[in-house]
Amino acid sequence: MRRYEPILALVLAAAMITAAIMAPWLRFVLTIALAKGIAVVGILLLLRAGQVSFGHALYVAFGAYVVAFLAPRLNDAVLLLAAAAVGAGILGLLIGLFVTRYRQIFFGMLNLAMSMVFYSLLEKLYHITHGSDGIRVEVMPVAGQALDRVAYEWSIFGIALALAFTVGLLVRLYLSSPMGEALAGIKTRETRLEFMGVPARGVLLSAYVMSAMLGGIGGAIIAMTSRHVTPLLAYWTSSGELVFIAILGGAGGVLGPFLGAAAFELVRIYAAASFADAWQLILGSVLLLVILFAPGGLWGMAARLLGKGGTR
């Protein structure tokens, strides 16, 4: 299955580009899906270590607000993406130093607590953040090029797609490296790692910082695409959404998050368009059905379709 992953990725990318050309509004939706996919790769990293962050929306929101705050001063999409990644990475390091001491529910709930504190701050510091009104992000130059709106949207879509590929590739390499193997060791038998002289906390911390950076990048792209950021990005249901996407897509491969994110956005739009007042019911049912009848998520389904069982 791993062999097919790059080919599948190319097919998926081609499908996305076709869809984006055919319908301008899909370009928007797919850019958001790619952004969320990138953030969910971060969730995937931690899931590899058996840890569920139920507060990762913190980093997505942080990345988005970095863009919103710095855009007037640092007016370039590429610079802002870098700033969001670095900023989220530093925040991830600070919080990670604390939360990586904990496992399972404590890890999940501490992350949740951090994101809720951040959410409250976004509301409380009204005079800086405009609270739930949010902050507008204007069309900005990309790599020094001033662009009109359509070209800008295409650029962000392109950047998101390129980043998705880069992130997917790097994380694939990382997961098969000794560091990645050690990460999986935390899930199964953490104590053994330490007997072997591998500092489990250090391994988890580095994965945590990486996942925070991915969240920051995803958030930055979301901010550049929807061009308006609000505290809702940090609310706990947004974190739940990220974990939702991870499981919907399947935790087996790095393609899973992107499959999951695209499916999530499309199902939500489809549900909202058909049953505007019961979209949660539909989204929840889809997730339940996938979990109960398609373990391994969409990626697992794809794997079975291709006739190869193993997804690891």
Binding site: G50, L283, G284, L288
Partner: peptide, 25 residues
């Protein structure tokens, strides 16, 4: 789902939460 991973169990209840949210309405 008792045999499944913790995160999957958590998500089943999250899905249920979303469904019940609309059912209440």
């Amino acid at each position: 789902i008792y045999a499944q991973e913790e995160v999957v169990q958590l998500l089943v209840t999250f899905a249920l939460f979303m469904i019940l949210e609309d059912v209440q309405k």
